[in-house]
C-alpha cells in the first residue's frame, strides 16, 4: 500500500480533488459539463502533440486545452450553430483526431487505456509538481475571481449592467477549467475527467447551504472518492479513473438516499 508510486498516486489524487472541487462546483452551477467533456477529449490531441514535439505530454495537454478553451469561448458568440451541437461536434472530433494522431505514431509505444481511463502507475514526480504548482495557481486565481464569478453565475445581466463582472472574468474562468482538466487527466483519464468535476458537487449539493460550504464539501467528497478509487485500483488492478468515478457515484447515490430518508422522517 505504501509503495512510492502509491504515495505519489494518493498525493496526486488529493491535489486533483482540491482543484476539481471548487471548479467543478462552477462547472455544475454554470452548466458547463459538455464544455468540460470537449476540453478533456481534446486532451488526447495534446498528448500526441507533446509526444511529437518531444516535450512532457502534460505541457502539450495544458496548451491544447487552453487553446481549445479559448476557441470555445470565442465560438459561443456565434449564432450559426447551437452551442451544444457545436460542443458535441468539437468534443468527438477532437477525440477522433487525437486517437488517429496517437495511433499513427509508430515509434512511440503508448498505453492508450492508461490515457483514456487513468493509471496510478503513470504518476511521476514531474506530474506531482504540475498538479500542485498548477493547482495552487488555479485556486489562487479562482479565489481572486470568486465573488465576480458567483455574481456572474447568479445573473449575468445584473453583473454586466452593474459593471461588476465582464467577459474577461468568463474567459479567465474558461482558462482555469482548461488547466484543471489538463492536470487531472493523467490519473482520472480523458474519458472520465468531467465526471470528477460533476459528480462530487452533485453529491455535495444536499450537504451545504452556501457556495463556499458546497465547495469545501465537494473537495471532501472528491478526496474520499479519489483515495477509495486509487486503493481499489491498487487492490484489484482496475483503471484508477474508473474506480474514482465509481466511488464518487456511490457517494452521490448515498447522498440522494440520505436526503430522501431525511425527508421521510420529518
Amino acid at each position: 500500500m505504501f509503495e512510492p508510486f502509491m504515495i505519489r498516486a494518493i498525493l496526486a489524487g488529493l491535489g486533483i480533488a482540491m482543484v476539481a472541487g471548487p471548479l467543478g462546483c462552477f462547472v455544475v452551477w454554470r452548466r458547463m459539463a459538455y464544455f468540460g467533456d470537449t476540453l478533456s477529449h481534446a486532451g488526447l490531441m495534446g498528448i500526441a502533440l507533446g509526444l511529437m514535439a518531444g516535450i512532457d505530454p502534460i505541457v502539450g495537454v495544458i496548451v491544447t486545452c487552453v487553446v481549445i478553451g479559448g476557441l470555445l469561448f470565442a465560438l459561443q458568440f456565434q449564432r450559426r450553430v447551437p452551442t451544444d451541437t457545436l460542443l458535441g461536434v468539437l468534443s468527438h472530433s477532437a477525440l477522433a483526431v487525437g486517437l488517429i494522431a496517437v495511433s499513427t505514431m509508430q515509434n512511440v509505444r503508448l498505453d492508450l487505456t492508461a490515457y483514456l481511463f487513468g493509471d496510478i502507475l503513470a504518476i511521476t514526480d514531474t506530474d506531482l509538481a504540475w498538479i500542485y504548482g498548477g493547482g495552487f495557481a488555479v485556486l489562487g486565481a479562482l479565489a481572486v475571481l470568486w465573488r465576480r464569478l458567483i455574481a456572474l453565475t447568479v445573473s449575468e445581466d445584473i453583473s454586466r449592467a452593474e459593471g461588476f463582472a465582464s467577459t474577461g472574468v468568463r474567459l479567465a474562468f474558461t482558462g482555469l477549467v482548461a488547466i484543471a482538466v489538463a492536470i487531472a487527466m493523467k490519473i482520472v483519464g480523458i474519458l472520465l475527467v468531467t465526471a470528477l468535476l460533476i459528480i462530487p458537487p452533485a453529491a455535495a449539493r444536499r450537504m451545504a447551504h452556501g457556495p463556499e460550504a458546497m465547495s469545501l464539501v465537494t473537495i471532501a467528497v472528491g478526496a474520499v472518492a479519489t483515495i477509495a478509487g486509487i486503493s481499489a485500483s491498487y487492490a484489484w488492478d482496475v483503471p484508477s479513473g474508473a474506480a474514482i468515478v465509481a466511488a464518487a457515484a456511490a457517494i452521490f447515490a448515498a447522498s440522494i438516499a440520505a436526503g430522501a430518508a431525511l425527508r421521510i422522517r420529518t
Binding site: V28, W29, R31, I150, A151, T153, V154, S155, I158, S159, E162, F164, R205, A208, H209, G210, P211, A213, M214
Partner: peptide, 15 residues
C-alpha cells in the same frame, strides 16, 4: 438555479 445554494443575504450582497 437550485444547483447553487444561496441565502437571501448572499443575493443582497451580490455586487
Amino acid at each position: 438555479d437550485p444547483a447553487l445554494p444561496l441565502s437571501v443575504r448572499r443575493v443582497l450582497t451580490l455586487t
